[in-house]
Amino acid sequence: MFAEGIAAVATEFAQELAFLPPAEQRKHRMRIRALTTAASNIQDGVPRDLDAIPGFRLPAELRQTRN
């Protein structure tokens, strides 16, 4: 569900590219790349090292069930 939504947003950005000035096109391409990577990772089940995210703390109830 999340992967499809992320991919849809990336598609919307791609459709807007032709109408943007070059600087905005570069920003959109970075966004598209990031969104596409995120969608692929979610779809493929790529594990995330949540402890590596600064300031992130998994709620206690989820930490107990984490592998």
Rank of each mutant, 00 (worst) to 15 (best):
E12N: 11
A38T: 05
N67Q: 13
E4R: 12
F13R: 15
A8E: 09
A18H: 03
E12C: 09
Q15I: 07
R63S: 14
A60V: 15
A34V: 12
K27W: 04
A8K: 08
A8V: 01
A39E: 05
A38Q: 03
R48P: 01
A23L: 13
V46C: 02
T37Y: 10
G55I: 00
L58C: 03
E24V: 04
R33S: 06
A38R: 02
G45A: 02
A39I: 08
A38H: 02
A10E: 12
M1I: 12
V9L: 09
D51L: 07
A34F: 03
H28L: 05
A39M: 06
R66D: 02
V9Q: 09
Q43P: 11
A14C: 00
R57G: 04
P59T: 00
D51T: 15
T65I: 03
P21N: 07
A10G: 09
A39R: 06
E24I: 05
E61I: 11
L62F: 12
N67M: 13
E61D: 14
A52R: 04
F2E: 06
G55R: 00
F19K: 13
I6V: 09
N67P: 15
A23Y: 08
A60H: 05
K27S: 15
D49N: 07
G55S: 02
F13K: 14
G5D: 11
D51W: 04
L35G: 02
M30K: 10
A23P: 02
G55Q: 01
R26M: 10
I32G: 13
K27Q: 14
L20E: 10
L35F: 04
E61K: 15
F19Y: 12
T11A: 13
N41C: 06
L58F: 00
F13W: 11
A34Q: 10
E4T: 09
E24Y: 07
E24D: 15
R57C: 02
A52L: 03
A3I: 00
E4M: 08
A34K: 08
L50M: 15
K27H: 10
S40R: 14
E12R: 11
A18G: 04
I32M: 05
R31P: 04
R57A: 05
A39F: 08
T65G: 02
R33A: 14
D49W: 01
F19R: 15
A14L: 00
A3C: 00
E4D: 12
N41K: 06
A18N: 11
P47A: 12
L58M: 07
I53W: 00
P54K: 02
R31Q: 09
F13Q: 06
P54N: 03
R57K: 06
A10S: 08
E12W: 07
M30F: 06
G45S: 03
A23E: 12
A14Y: 01
P54Y: 00
S40I: 13
V46M: 05
A7K: 09
E24S: 09
M30V: 10
A52S: 13
I32F: 03
N67C: 10
F13S: 14
T36C: 02
F13H: 15
R63E: 14
P21Q: 06
S40M: 10
A7D: 07
G55V: 00
R29I: 09
R48H: 05
L20D: 08
L62A: 13
S40F: 12
L50C: 08
I6E: 07
T11G: 07
A60S: 14
R48L: 15
L20T: 07
Q15G: 11
M30I: 07
A60P: 02
A10K: 10
S40D: 10
